[in-house]
Amino acid sequence: MKHMQHFTRQCLRAVCISAMAWAVSGCSLLPTESFNFQAELPENFTISATTYYDAASGESCPGHKVVKSEQPKGTQLIELKLPLAERVKGCSRVLKSVVLNIEGRWGQRELDMDMDSAGLSIRDELSETTQPFPATGPLVFQGQCQWLFRTMGPHRYIVKILQCRALDANGVVQKRLPGGAIQRDQLAGRTVKLVLTEAKEEKPYFGRSWLETPKGWKPCIETKETFRCQNPPTFTDFKMPDGRDCTVYPNCTE
């Protein structure tokens, strides 16, 4: 009888150990929690996501890991699945932030482009800056990208700078970059969407050096003290990217 009891205890112990081992090993086999990121972009824009992972609470992982996700060229609506955590060489890492690299093209040449960024910050605690998810559907962040023109070089060729900023609920442009903070425990299985639009009109990068006229924007010579147009203004010419000599932007001639 005692022999049978001892045998039974040994069997139960073996079963428990096996179950525990399966549970531990099975952790790496379970699907990792993730969320969907979507981006709606203007024409001639692309985006890529750079995800930053750092050590989970209570663990000491050296440094952080960066993973890049590229968008297929020519698509204006993209979707990426971004893991919230990962385990590498026995070290648990959790998603801390997502940097969204925005690239816009303003011309046909290879260098006729510029970049700006947006971002998502993943927070463990609720704060005044974290954005709550709606009851259904995606959490949407709105942004607008503005092209700013300026002249560059001794021949004063026109180039353009990309500036992307957040929009509030009323569509008013903010000073901060598009995106925001999200609470971690709300993210799994949900969708975060960035909707970017392009401003209809371009603006001068150095607004004090250009004057708007009925024919368009005209560049003027600045004063050395204030870097503003002289009074009365003295205008100068510039070159379009295709080499044309112009006096007014974007129409070139008055």
Rank of each mutant, 00 (worst) to 15 (best):
K2I: 08
H3C: 09
M4Q: 11
R9L: 14
R9H: 08
M20T: 11
W22K: 02
S25Q: 06
C27I: 02
C27N: 03
S28N: 10
L30Q: 04
L30R: 04
S34V: 02
N36D: 03
N36H: 07
Q38F: 02
E40C: 03
A49D: 01
A49V: 04
T50N: 12
T51P: 00
Y52G: 00
S57N: 09
G58A: 11
G63S: 10
K65G: 03
V67P: 01
S69F: 04
E70N: 12
K73R: 13
G74I: 13
K81M: 08
L82D: 00
L82F: 00
P83M: 07
L84H: 05
E86Q: 15
R87E: 14
K89D: 15
K89Q: 15
C91H: 07
S92L: 14
R93C: 00
R93Q: 02
S97D: 00
I102L: 09
W106T: 08
G107H: 06
Q108C: 05
Q108H: 07
L111G: 05
L111T: 12
D114V: 13
D114H: 10
D116E: 10
A118L: 00
A118G: 05
A118S: 02
I122T: 03
R123C: 05
R123N: 07
L126A: 13
L126F: 07
S127G: 15
Q131L: 12
P134V: 10
F141W: 06
F141P: 01
F141K: 02
Q142P: 05
Q144C: 11
W147N: 10
M152E: 15
G153R: 03
H155A: 04
V159S: 12
L162S: 10
Q163F: 09
L167A: 12
L167Q: 11
N170C: 04
V172E: 04
V172L: 01
V172F: 01
Q174L: 15
K175F: 10
R176K: 11
L177S: 11
Q186H: 08
Q186T: 14
V192C: 06
L196H: 09
T197G: 09
E198G: 01
E198S: 04
A199S: 15
Y205T: 01
G207W: 11
W210Y: 12
L211Y: 03
E212K: 15
T213D: 03
K215T: 13
I221A: 14
E225W: 05
C229L: 05
P232Y: 04
P232T: 03
T234F: 04
F235L: 05
F235E: 06
D237K: 14
F238D: 06
F238E: 10
F238L: 09
M240S: 14
R244N: 13
C246M: 12
V248M: 07
Y249H: 12
